[in-house]
């Protein structure tokens, strides 16, 4: 799980061009949105594309998206249980 969390953090940094942030700066339990990383609604859409492209996960329900982006830990858990690639 730790490895997937680190991979996800690096993928988030790359996909969202968070150039001044390193994986170690992202707390696994901290909210991805609303504070800290300063992500916006376009970033949320980009993360949804990332999940589909890298893990074959299609997020169609906005409520699911809101839930899984609560933290890297929550996201990693969801990815590990739902990935198709």
């Amino acid at each position: 799980m730790d490895n997937l969390q680190d991979i996800l953090k690096q993928q988030i940094i790359d996909a969202l061009n968070l150039e001044e942030i390193e994986t170690a700066d992202i707390d696994n339990d901290a909210p991805l949105f609303g504070e800290g990383l300063g992500l916006d609604s376009i970033d949320a859409l980009e993360l949804i594309v990332l999940l589909e492209r890298n893990y074959g996960i299609k997020i169609k329900d906005p409520a699911v998206g809101k839930e899984i982006f609560k933290s890297v830990n929550v996201l990693a858990d969801y990815v590990s249980k739902n990935r198709t690639k």
């Binding site: 061009n17 859409l45 980009e46 594309v49 492209r53």
Partner: peptide
Amino acid sequence: FFPSPAVFV
């Protein structure tokens, strides 16, 4: 086919 929202804007 993965249209990028961040590029599109």
